[in-house]
């Protein structure tokens, strides 16, 4: 009753532009969203604010005292060659995995498109690594990359290539992790590309045929590639986001080594925060990490918008 009289006392002019708010509906809606709203505040908004705040302190987990240090953590990071190494490694890894999984995903999708009754079988096979626990498969890869008893060196030995200690050699460790990353991700890209391909009307290929496109390549250039462009961009962005978060393989297989060759951003943050308990410094890395993800995800949003508009 009180709410009724209160809303009746409100100025009436907004009624024209927006739906009349009915108090009972409002209460019912709030009952539905209240748990979500509370949890968003508690385990998303507050921690987000906390991470920014912590990044400006010298807090160490378990320490009694802490003080505000301003941008000192960021300045330290900027002066730290390991941190820079970590950024460079992350970027190299991301570029390799994104290029590899996108290209491989597109190639397999194209090969499966219009292919025989076996297409579902191939699709299942290529998607299997996406489903499998990466950490368990990383351990399998570690065994396969074993310098003496590993399958990879064994196979390469057949064609006369000398054994390589893949994960302990600073030249090969990061590329080896990238190969595992590509192996794990390309099936995901393939599924997105297949969805994109199925959205291209057959009539356009018929039209290209009637218009005299002389080869499969020219039909690809005229129809497939341009119509797939938004999906491709989307796949690139989403695999960038995923590979940016590389952690499992690094932690399980190389611990950032040898000689920082596989030190990547998330691993650096983990080590700072949960091994050395330099909480403030880890928070600073987290803030930079979020900033990077923000840029990437905003790109994704823009791309999705564009995709919808092209339809």
């Amino acid at each position: 009753m009180t709410e009724m009289s209160r809303s009746a006392a409100l100025p009436r002019q907004p009624v024209e532009t927006e739906r009349v708010r009915r108090p009972h509906e409002e209460r019912a809606a709030w009952r539905l969203v209240a748990p979500a709203a509370m949890l968003i505040i508690l385990i998303l908004a507050l921690p987000m604010a906390a991470v920014v705040a912590l990044s400006l302190t010298d807090y160490q987990l378990g320490a009694e005292a802490w003080r505000f240090v301003g941008a000192a953590n960021y300045a330290d990071l900027a002066a730290d060659p390991v941190f820079w190494r970590s950024i460079v490694n992350t970027v190299v890894y991301v570029v390799e995995v994104v290029a590899g999984s996108t290209a491989l995903g597109l190639a397999t999708a194209l090969m499966l498109q219009g292919s025989s009754i076996l297409a579902p079988v191939w699709r299942t096979v290529f998607f299997l690594p996406v489903m499998a626990s990466l950490i368990a498969m990383a351990i399998v890869w570690e065994f396969m990359l074993h310098p003496t008893f590993g399958l990879v060196n064994g196979m390469l030995g057949l064609v006369g290539i000398a054994p390589v200690n893949w994960l302990q050699n600073s030249a090969t460790a990061l590329p080896a992790l990238a190969v595992i990353g590509i192996w794990q991700q390309f099936g995901f890209a393939m599924v997105l590309f297949l969805a994109g391909l199925s959205g291209i009307p057959q009539a356009l290929y018929d039209a290209a045929e009637m218009d005299g496109a002389p080869s499969a390549w020219s039909r690809f250039r005229l129809v497939t590639w341009p119509l797939l462009a938004p999906v491709t961009l989307f796949v690139v962005v989403i695999s960038t986001i995923r590979s940016f978060q590389v952690f499992d393989t690094v932690h399980a297989l190389t611990k950032g080594g040898p000689n920082k060759a596989t030190e990547v951003l998330l691993y650096t943050m983990y080590a700072e925060g949960f091994e050395f308990f330099r909480t403030g410094r880890a928070a600073a890395i987290a803030v930079l990490f979020v900033a990077a993800m923000l840029v990437l995800t905003l790109t994704k949003v823009v791309v999705v918008e564009k995709r919808i508009h092209l339809k």
């Binding site: 018929d206 039209a207 009637m210 005299g212 341009p226």
Partner: peptide, 20 residues
Amino acid sequence: PARDRDFAMVFQNYALYPHL
């Protein structure tokens, strides 16, 4: 093949290339 028969076709849904 269709491209060498030298016919032109108008499709039910027009089949215009959306990006051109």
